[in-house]
Amino acid sequence: MTAPANKTPRWPLWLLIAACALSLIAGLFNHWHAHFAAEAWPGFFALIGFAAVSLLMLLARLFAPLLRRPPQYYGEESSEREVHHD
């Protein structure tokens, strides 16, 4: 996952932001049948979604140096296979 080239179109991002905003607004007008109090908080699920992805990517960056090893670590060859053009 590297940063995309600068020529990546911007409209998908704006579309995503618009969809996010719509889901937030819909949540404000919804009458929640909550089993936990938190479910009815405005934007609770939005917060969980955004925070969880950020947290997981942060954890991945933290654990990367601990858990990543070179490809030959277990003394195996690469998993390359033959290519079929038929």
């Binding site: 889901s23 819909a26 609770f44 917060l47 969880a52 950020s54």
Partner: peptide
Amino acid sequence: ISQLQLLLFGSLAFVLA
């Protein structure tokens, strides 16, 4: 609504990252 908020804001965090 809950699932869409979860997925859309999760995707937003991924795209921004």
